[in-house]
Design a protein around this nucleic acid. Structure first.
Length: 276
DNA sequence: ATGGGTACCTGTCTGC
DNA sequence: TGCAGACAGGTACCCA
């Protein structure tokens, strides 16, 4: 599910409810990707600080009085969503983590359990630091632009779609938004990174930012699982120009959209509008 | 160093 | 109707 827009929509959705909440307890369901890494008694009595996002991770800082108590690093994996429930019902079969607080419960629902919640003493110490170390720049940072992409890509031979997914040059694009951004930029997803000119990197940087920003405005994409913190679906999938549209006519030129497989993932593109 | 394949897990849809 | 197989928004890890 969740690429940068879905994670950002989630962050905004939970922030107002959970910030300042007093943690009463933690409930764990079936195991997620990693163990929590802290006994629940260590979390009780802490207060949740401002929720941050880094790439597709969320960070919930915890304090007790003036003491820093680290925080929770949350990843939604492929099928996860977080909901804030003022009066939660009993957990369902796919509800694998509850943060029970004074004002309600933050609940992670994740059928495939590729998601994770883990405690870390800070973002710059393990285990969080280890997971964040390989992440590229944020697409909405001033440091990101065509120049950054060009420098990150110029010694790479892999296909540009695969490199966007890898997230070590720029974070945020997953399988949907990588295809969509490349369509907007008019770049064939199979193009080797090193072949992209400065000018095309500029176009790609703009396209990526534009696509992600628009997706956030639409509440993200809901293919099946994704829900925001209030349980609403996103609608960006209705704006998608190529993703999931194999065989349908391109909006620009009416050529049928094609699907191919790169690194075991589907890529969608217009063979006429997108050039190497 | 880079790049590819595999693994994790469950649900849904398609075609026979 | 049943069942096998493909596919689904991510990414850490192992190997060449």
């Amino acid at each position: 599910m969740p690429e940068l827009p879905e994670v950002e929509v989630t962050r905004r959705g939970i922030a107002a409810s959970i910030e300042g909440a007093l943690v009463h307890d933690v409930r764990l369901g079936k195991p997620l990707r990693w163990p929590l890494g802290a006994p629940s008694r260590a979390l009780r009595g802490t207060v949740v600080g401002p929720v941050q996002r880094r790439g597709k991770y969320l960070w919930l800082p915890l304090r007790a009085g003036d003491q820093d108590r680290g925080g929770l690093l949350v990843h939604l994996g492929m099928s996860g969503s977080l909901a804030f429930e003022p009066r939660p019902g009993p957990p369902g079969v796919h509800d694998h983590f509850d943060l029970v607080t004074s004002v309600g419960t933050l609940r992670l629902t994740d059928p495939r359990r590729f998601g994770a919640v883990l405690w870390s003493p800070s973002l710059v110490q393990p285990p969080a630091a280890r997971l964040l170390a390989r992440l590229g720049v944020e697409p909405f940072d001033a440091a990101f632009g065509g120049m950054h992409l060009w420098q990150g890509f110029r010694r790479r031979r892999t296909a540009v779609k695969t490199a966007l997914l890898a997230g070590d040059v720029v974070v945020g694009a997953g399988n949907i938004y990588a295809s969509e951004a490349l369509f907007r930029a008019g770049i064939d997803p199979r193009t080797p990174c090193a072949r992209l000119s400065r000018a095309r990197c500029e176009r790609l940087a703009d396209a990526l930012r534009g696509t992600l920003a628009e997706a956030v405005e639409h509440g993200g994409s809901t293919l099946r699982d994704f829900r925001d913190a209030q349980g609403h679906s996103g609608s960006f999938q209705l704006q998608a120009k190529v993703y999931g549209r194999e065989g349908e006519p391109c909006e620009i030129c009416a050529t049928p959209i094609r699907r191919l497989v790169q690194a075991q993932r589907s890529t969608y593109f217009c063979p006429h509008c997108q050039r190497r």
